[in-house]
C-alpha cells in the first residue's frame, strides 16, 4: 500500500504508523469517566468500506495525516494533513 504524504510524496505503508480512527472526538478533559470516555478510549467501529483514519509518517516527516481508506479494497481516496484538516 502506498500513502501519498502531502510533504514527502507517495511512500510505502511501512514508513507510516497507524494512529486509529479519525472520527473519534476526545471528551472534555475535565469531565469524569463515563460513557463518553469509554467510547473514546475503547470503542471502535469496524467499517467495511470508506474509513477515515489517522496515520503518522513516522519514518519520514512525522506529520499526522487523515487518510480515507476503503477497508475492503485498501484504495485510498484522500490524504490530508491533520493540521489544516477541517474536521
Amino acid at each position: 500500500m502506498l500513502i501519498g504524504c502531502p510533504y514527502c510524496g507517495p511512500r510505502d505503508v511501512g514508513e507510516f504508523t497507524y494512529q486509529g480512527d479519525a472520527n473519534r472526538k476526545r471528551p472534555d478533559p475535565a469531565s469524569p469517566a463515563g460513557a463518553e470516555w469509554e467510547r473514546y478510549v475503547y470503542e471502535r467501529t469496524n467499517t467495511a468500506g470508506e474509513h477515515r483514519e489517522y496515520w503518522q509518517h513516522s519514518g519520514g516527516c512525522r506529520a499526522h495525516l487523515v487518510v480515507t481508506r476503503n477497508t475492503v479494497t485498501h484504495a485510498i481516496s484522500s490524504v490530508t494533513l491533520v493540521r489544516g484538516d477541517d474536521a
Binding site: 494512529q19 489517522y54 503518522q56 513516522s58 512525522r62 506529520a63 499526522h64 491533520v82 493540521r83
Partner: peptide, 13 residues
C-alpha cells in the same frame, strides 16, 4: 515521542 506528537497534532493543535 509518538504519544506527544499525536496529542499536539490531533488533540491540541
Amino acid at each position: 515521542m509518538q504519544h506527544l506528537e499525536y496529542l499536539l497534532d490531533i488533540v491540541w493543535p
